[in-house]
């Protein structure tokens, strides 16, 4: 065969291959777009088609990850949820694409990428997430710190603990939650301080996380802070101690039943009633007898009823 003919045949093959590849890519994209319309549809009449469509997109694999990420600019909440769900189903293969997207200038996309990385929970995302911990947009910091907790990134503990003092309540909340997930005992002191936070999400999340940390250290920290001028610290300390139920907790709570504030006395008393479930009736009876505030007494009898109902 003449050399010119060979070149012509190869050229034609390359052209044909190129056209086929291009047509294939177009076909894949069309299929993706079509499935995405169904996966993100909201009508009740299409409800049964939604999950299979999401599965079908996920089955297309990591190739569709960049398209999904590009769609993160959507204004539709339904589409946003669809993207998250599909990325989660694709899982780790999508992570490199998501990590690259953390460098995008659109903060809205970055925060949603952090969210997806947290849901996928692949440790390959830890360092990139740490890198955005000081992002100017608080929503990014919120999602990144939360994602580190979901991933279980123990080496990110210092970053998470540092975020407990962020200027934005939502970020402090995310840090408190992640401290619990990472069992970050080094954060106990700051978490106790967070019990008095202005933002209820941070305050209550700190309470829940402290219940997951080393009981001995937590009780010491709570006992030291229970007389804080910030009533939330003491009130929540009572609630935590009521659940931890150690002897030191009881001793501390008993002291609090003498507090000036009827609210504090009630917090301490109800905690004691809950933790002494076998003797709850007598404990309640005694504490009620000497309690001058009728509403505090009602809180105690309510606690007793709750204990009895649970039994």
């Amino acid at each position: 065969m003449r050399r010119s003919n060979v070149i012509a045949i190869i050229g034609a093959l390359v052209l044909l291959f190129g056209m086929t590849t291009s047509a294939g890519a177009d076909e894949t994209r069309t299929k993706f777009d079509s499935l995405f319309v169904i996966a993100s549809s909201g009508g009740v009449q299409f409800r049964e088609m939604v999950e299979p469509a999401k599965d079908s997109i996920a089955a297309m694999g990591e190739d569709v990850a960049p398209w999904l990420i590009d769609k993160f600019t959507t204004k539709s909440a339904r589409e946003r949820w669809t993207i998250i769900h599909v990325l989660k189903r694709i899982g780790s293969p999508a992570v490199p694409y998501l990590v690259r997207a953390l460098k995008r200038s659109d903060g809205l996309v970055v925060q949603r990428v952090c969210w997806a990385l947290g849901d996928i929970a692949d440790s390959a995302a830890v360092d990139p997430l740490i890198d955005v911990r000081h992002h100017s947009r608080w929503q990014v910091r919120d999602q990144a710190i939360g994602a580190l907790g979901k991933i279980g990134a123990y080496r990110a503990e210092p970053v998470v603990i540092e975020a407990l003092t962020d200027s934005i309540g939502q970020v402090r909340k995310a840090a408190a939650v992640s401290c619990g997930k990472l069992t970050a005992d080094d954060g106990i002191a700051r978490l106790v301080h967070l019990l008095g936070d202005d933002f209820y999400g941070a305050r209550m999340s700190a309470m829940e996380s402290l219940l997951k940390l080393d009981t001995t250290f937590v009780v010491v920290a709570l006992s030291d802070s229970i007389a804080s001028d910030n009533n939330f610290v003491g009130d929540l300390a009572c609630r935590i101690m009521g659940q931890l139920g150690t002897p030191r907790c009881i001793a501390t709570l008993l002291v609090q039943t003498h507090a000036d504030s009827p609210s504090r006395r009630a917090h301490a008393a109800t905690a004691l009633i809950h933790m002494t479930s076998q003797n709850a009736e007598s404990v309640c009876s005694f504490l009620s007898m000497r309690e001058p505030d009728r509403l505090a007494r009602l809180k105690m009898t309510s606690a007793l009823n709750a204990v009895i109902n649970e039994q």
Partner: peptide
């Protein structure tokens, strides 16, 4: 058991505090 003893003893020794609801 130990903490229940502490609890009962302390309860018996505790004075009540009167604070009005405002």
């Amino acid at each position: 058991m130990c903490y229940r003893v502490i609890l009962c003893l302390t309860l018996l020794l505790t004075p009540a505090t009167l604070v009005a609801q405002d």
